[in-house]
Simulated assay, not measured.
Amino acid sequence: MLNGEKKMERPFRWAMVGGGRLGQVGYKHRIGALRDNTAYQLVAGAFDIEPARGKDFGINIGVDEERCYPDYKTMFTKEALRADGIEVVSIATPNGTHYEICKAALEAGLHVICEKPLFFTSEEGEEIKALAEEKGKIVGVTYGFSGNQMLLQMRAMIEQGLIGDIRVVDLEYTHGFNATDKSDKVSEAQKWRVDPKIAGPSFVLGDLSTHTYYMSQLIMPNMKISRLLCDRQSFISSRAPLEDNAFVLMQYENGAVGRLWTSSINAGCMDGHRIRIVGSKASLEWWDSKPGELRYEVQGEPIQTLIRAMPYLDDLCNADERLGALHQEGLSESWANIYLKIALAIDAKNRNDEETLKNLIYPDIDAGINGIRWIENCVRSAENGAAWVEFENKKSISI
Rank of each mutant, 00 (worst) to 15 (best):
F12V: 05
E376L: 11
E107V: 04
R21M: 11
I138W: 05
Y69C: 05
E376N: 15
Y312G: 08
E133H: 13
I158L: 11
S234Q: 03
C269K: 13
L34D: 00
V88P: 04
E321A: 12
K224A: 14
M215A: 03
R82V: 00
M220L: 14
N350P: 06
S209V: 08
L260R: 07
H211V: 00
L81H: 08
S280T: 13
E159W: 02
L284C: 05
L313D: 04
D71N: 12
N377D: 05
I49D: 10
H175K: 08
P311I: 05
E355D: 14
G96E: 02
V168H: 13
H29S: 06
M250V: 03
G20V: 04
E390H: 10
M8P: 09
V141E: 08
G109I: 01
N370L: 12
T262K: 08
R193N: 11
N384A: 12
V379K: 07
T142H: 07
Y213K: 06
R227T: 03
G58R: 07
L316W: 07
Q41D: 11
G279E: 02
G32C: 04
C68I: 08
E87K: 06
S263I: 12
V63S: 08
N60A: 12
D36P: 09
V141C: 15
I219C: 07
I219V: 15
N3Y: 12
E87W: 01
I338S: 03
N3Q: 12
T97S: 14
L208R: 06
F235L: 14
R82L: 08
S263A: 12
E124F: 10
L22S: 13
C102R: 01
G200W: 00
C269T: 14
A309R: 11
I31M: 10
V89G: 07
A282V: 05
I303H: 10
W335H: 13
K290T: 11
S334W: 00
E159M: 09
R35D: 03
E87N: 04
Q251A: 11
S280L: 03
K103P: 03
E127H: 12
I307H: 11
A282G: 06
G140F: 01
A246Q: 00
E79M: 05
C68Q: 06
E9G: 09
E301Q: 15
V298F: 09
P11I: 07
D231Y: 10
I307T: 13
